[in-house]
Design a protein around this nucleic acid. Structure first.
Lengths: 290, 290
DNA sequence: CGCAATCGATAACAGTCTCTGATCAATGAA
DNA sequence: TTCATTGATCAGAGACTGTTATCGATTGCG
């Protein structure tokens, strides 16, 4: 009984969350046989069946479910006790972070740097994806913490604002020299998932402009490449193009839109891992500014 | 961080209780170097000093003390969750039981047998000692559960009555044939720690008997040997001499005293180990009768 | 002061455990 | 059926844990 370690319980909790041994193995950075072995150890030690075969999946038995329920708060409390004891300096573990591309450009460098400086021992695994998919991944347990653009709200998700960045209308210097912003200039934007899209459309109609075309690209870096290559104009986050504006590669072609892009950090509302909560707290202390 | 197991915490808790690594090692049925290694593992994992050298002892640091305080209920919670999950059938561990000699004769056989039948995997370590010393051992953590004779009360100790046995005045058959109980017959008893002593003295004065001598022996079995060898008369628990009464080796020499010997189970009031609490609960369900 | 007792640290070695990687059987979907 | 997925199993390598036998440091006692 005493030979049950914390990672046994952690394993149990992640299997319960993710549904399969394999997913838990991936989440815990190990292999499926190792997960099987841990489960078998738990069952041997306790002398009960925690899982029951159901088709090709394993499902918690009644006792197993109860055990998980009882252990979850205990495990969280335990992690918290250990982490606070070491002032989070001895924090160890892997935290998966998802981020939208715009948020990544603005938030991730500073955040990652701060974590690596203040919490060595914590490994971050970053994954850039669309905001929409991020929610699934958060709720599904594939990621623990997300950085998103635009005010979002969803049941089961807890968010904290971490700042905003201004927007600018830019086009390549060559485009400006060739006549500036007129109706013949293509406009590029991000698919309508993103708040950037709304700002682009709104700003165009506010200026009474109907562009020749409104192209979209789901990758902001590529979009910048397109614009800087003379492909048209776009509304972009100021920090992402600041350098190119300063170097003259890009130029502003319309007044800056009033609206800003809000950034938020997000976690599961039911998150109990103290390390994730601590990272969320620290993320909330980030102040992103133009 | 995840590599900390439950026994690491248990180790910490027992060091905190007992004061030295060595004592904890003995209590946990292992060696002192193993304890040192566990402590080092905890400190390495947390990156903090849990103990500080103080003369030739190790003392908890402020952080260490806090960690212990926070972990104690968590550890108990884990143990309880695991034990209840397995219905105590998978219970594993060593529980130290202290017992007075009289209580041992009346309570231990049944209790030990029940535990071995219903809770295989639980190892009991029995130690017979004087009631007075039992309290020290309980409070000091050397034993976890005690069986005692006579109503006792002490701060820091929780007790539960588990029954009573009647008393008989006995002497050897030879002694009875030689004239029965008269003033010339020596009386034997236990030192005044025990309630038996009070009963012996009270019963003598109630019968107006002043014995030739009142010897004491701190070992009841030896005392029985003395009496059955013709050495005198004594007040003894009925179950302990029943067989010798039936076989005729001993005979009753005075009316049975009204008073009985009460038996109680005792644990630390602060006890948190679910296994010990469970054994205490089961002990409380014992019903000892004459 | 010297001596014995106690405390904890350390090193070497043996035994055990745990993980990985490569399979295999069972199940369900195309 | 064929293929993809899930978990079980097994052999081997590597890491970990515990024990024994020591050591240095400190304390208490003559």
């Amino acid at each position: 009984m005493k030979r049950i370690a914390l990672y046994h319980l952690e394993t149990l909790l992640w299997i319960a969350r993710l549904g399969t041994f394999r997913a838990a193995a991936e989440r815990l950075n190990t292999t499926q046989p190792a997960i099987s072995a841990r489960v078998r150890e738990i069952e041997d030690q306790l002398g009960i069946a925690v899982f029951r075969r159901e088709g090709r999946n394993m499902v918690l038995t009644a006792r197993g479910r109860r055990l998980v329920q009882e252990c979850e708060p205990l495990w969280a409390g335990f992690e918290k006790a250990l982490l606070t004891a070491s002032g989070f300096e001895g924090a160890t573990g892997v935290v998966r972070i998802g981020s939208g591309e715009i948020a990544a450009a603005s938030c991730l460098p500073g955040f990652v740097h701060a974590v690596e400086r203040e919490l060595p021992g914590v490994t971050l695994e970053l994954e850039l994806d669309l905001t929409a998919r991020m929610f699934q991944q958060l709720l599904g347990g594939t990621i623990d913490l997300a950085f998103l653009a635009g005010p979002v709200a969803s049941p089961g998700i807890r968010t904290a604002p971490i700042g905003a960045v201004g927007l600018v209308w830019v086009a390549s210097a060559a485009t400006v020299r060739a006549g500036g912003f007129d109706q013949s200039l293509p406009v590029w934007s991000i698919p309508d998932h993103s708040p950037l899209h709304g700002v682009t459309v709104g700003s165009l109609s506010a200026h009474g402009i109907v562009p020749r075309s409104l192209g979209t690209c789901n990758n902001v870096r590529t979009l910048i490449d397109i614009v800087s290559g003379g492909g048209g104009a776009a509304v972009l986050p100021e920090p992402m193009v600041r350098q190119m504006l300063e170097s003259g590669a890009l130029a502003e072609v319309l007044p800056r839109p009033d609206r800003t892009i809000q950034f938020e950090a997000a976690i599961r509302r039911t998150e109990s891992d103290p390390l994730v909560l601590e990272l969320f707290r620290r993320a909330g202390e980030l102040r992103i500014e133009s």
